[in-house]
Design a protein around this nucleic acid. Structure first.
Length: 192
DNA sequence: TGGACGATTGACT
DNA sequence: GTCAATCGTCCAA
């Protein structure tokens, strides 16, 4: 499979749209491949009150101020790990939160890691991190190489993309910076 | 140096 | 639908 073209990780809103359909591949220490197709993203930028980078660089967010194509990983609610792909130029605090994947390879191992099956494997930022064994040890990792890689996938046509407000925010809640693939069962949130 | 607050999830009513 | 878990981070004092 071809690597994702990191030069496309400029403006985070544009990158969030473009990352739909791309593949995230995790290679376990024993060689097991865990992968999924990105079906839901959110864009964050230092000019945005909702972003972790809004108040400038800190020890936690420094990866987002570094070069594009790295993993910015943070702990949410003291419990879950969530992963972003950094965007923009060095010195610019921007990134794209990966909110949902469609499992491709290693589904059985993901089921063991999650202790669950089906839609709940990867339909949320904390869920997909657990399913792909992503944690703080991968902070700042360059996504061009193992054990965590971003690969080119099939392009998602505009007609299959919906743009909405982001999830779980108190500040900047009205900006339309969430992107999802409309026919995917794995998009986060409750379903009927 | 204390304390309020999450870019969430899952269990329970 | 409601709510607790759980702890690092950041700001006010």
């Amino acid at each position: 499979m071809l690597p994702y073209d990191m030069s496309r990780l400029g403006d985070p809103a544009r990158a969030a749209r473009d990352l739909l359909g791309a593949i995230l591949l995790r290679t376990m220490p024993d060689g097991t491949r865990l992968s999924g197709r990105i079906v839901e993203t959110e864009a964050y930028h230092e000019s945005d009150p909702a972003s972790h980078t809004y108040r400038g660089p800190t020890a936690r967010n420094k990866a987002m101020f570094g070069p594009a194509g790295r993993a910015y990983i943070y702990r949410s609610y003291g419990i879950h790990w969530c992963m972003n792909i950094t965007c923009g130029t060095t010195g610019e605090g921007a990134g794209v939160l990966i909110r949902a994947l469609e499992p491709l390879e290693g589904v059985h191992v993901m089921e063991v890691l999650r202790g669950r099956k089906g839609r709940e494997l990867t339909s949320g930022p904390g869920r997909l991190s657990e399913a792909l064994a992503i944690d703080g040890s991968l902070y700042g990792h360059h996504l061009a190489e193992p054990p965590l890689q971003l690969l080119q996938g099939e392009t998602v046509p505009d007609g299959m993309v919906r743009q909405t407000t982001r999830i779980g925010l108190t500040k900047g809640a009205d900006a339309l910076l969430r992107f999802l693939v409309v026919d995917s069962v794995f998009v986060s949130g409750k379903r009927s």
